[in-house]
């Protein structure tokens, strides 16, 4: 770990003021950042500690939605009665991630910003365009079992590791931020992440020094069934090979609403309108489910060790859709 300076903020306004230079990073739970700092994958010059900001509340809004403070720990969010009852997919996704200890420390805002678990990103001696732009991608010719098959570029095939963020995408969450200039912004989670393209080191649309203060969930979809299914190499404490977050309603024998997001497949929590278009208005059937899977993987590309993710995700999606639409 390199030496850094440290500032503790008491208000969000102070936090963005304190984040006053390149190399400045916010720290909340630190469950990912500290690991990366120890390995010098991240070498911030200054940490702005936001862990004491008053952003740890979950509030119901008049429109029926929830506003979740950025510092709400993952374990609290998963255990919140309103979340369990109305946004079950979120609770389930949270509990599928990490371990009890980590969930107690990890924050809602920080979870959205987890860095990839690509083996080469973690090793300073291996070229990595995400860690050090322009050096190349070691994963493509190397070991890539856990890496992405959707949304990759010739520069990066990393996956986003979060479970929570996958559920957030299925729930159409909005990320609320405070910018350095004091402006607040509301960013749809669908616009929040960036594809790697030729700048894989830039993962979100956040501007330098911009602070996530809240995550908003819209009013829950009435009568929806929620499923979060995570497939992994061991029963706990493993990142998703594939995960599916589904929120679906069936009315009069036809799929009325379908929100499906995927983890373990892409550089961001993945959602594809074409998948849902293949389902909405259809009677639940293997043909419709197969068409949804075809839509999901129309541009999929495996890199050898991770080829299996395509059939695995296809099977998982179909089984999940059956569960979501079963009478």
């Amino acid at each position: 770990m390199r030496s850094f300076t440290y500032a503790r903020a008491d208000t969000a306004e102070q936090a963005v003021r304190d984040n006053d230079a390149d190399g400045c990073v916010f720290i909340a739970g630190g469950t990912n950042l500290l690991d990366l700092m120890k390995l010098q994958v991240e070498t911030p010059e200054k940490l702005v500690d936001i862990s004491r900001l008053p952003l740890a509340e979950i509030e119901e809004r008049e429109d029926g939605g929830l506003t979740i403070g950025a510092l709400v720990p993952n374990s609290d969010l998963a255990a919140d009665r309103r979340v369990i009852e109305k946004y079950e997919v979120l609770s389930r996704a949270l509990l599928a991630g990490a371990s009890g200890q980590l969930r107690n420390k990890a924050s809602t805002g920080g979870n959205l910003l987890q860095r990839t678990r690509c083996y080469y990103f973690y090793d300073l001696a291996s070229p990595c365009n995400k860690r050090e732009p322009g050096t190349g991608c070691s994963a493509m010719g190397g070991f890539n079992r856990v890496l992405a098959v959707l949304g990759t570029s010739e520069h990066c095939i990393a996956t986003h590791p979060s479970d929570m963020a996958v559920a957030m995408r299925a729930l159409d969450a909005t990320v609320v931020t405070l910018k350095k200039d004091g402006d607040k912004r509301r960013i749809s989670i669908h616009d929040f992440y960036r594809l790697p393209g030729d700048t894989p080191h830039i993962e979100t649309v956040l501007e330098p020094g911009e602070l996530i203060t809240h995550v908003e969930l819209p009013a829950p979809v009435e009568g929806a069934r929620h499923v979060y299914r995570k497939v992994r190499d061991r029963a706990s404490y493993a990142f998703a090979l594939v995960s599916v977050a589904g929120v679906v309603t069936v009315e009069d024998g036809r799929i009325a609403h379908a929100a499906l997001a995927f983890g373990g497949l892409g550089p961001m929590p993945w959602r594809d309108d074409a998948v849902e278009a293949a389902l909405v208005g259809q009677a639940p059937s293997d043909a419709a489910f197969g068409a949804a899977a075809d839509a999901l993987f129309r541009d999929a590309q495996g890199y050898g060790h991770n080829d299996f993710k395509i059939p695995l995700a296809r099977r998982t999606l179909i089984a999940t859709l059956r569960e979501l639409t079963a009478e």
């Binding site: 678990r117 083996y119 190499d233 061991r234 029963a235 404490y237 493993a238």
Partner: peptide, 10 residues
């Protein structure tokens, strides 16, 4: 995290 020994749940 990436070399998987069995966790309690396994």
């Amino acid at each position: 995290a990436e070399y998987h020994v069995p966790a309690n749940a396994d």
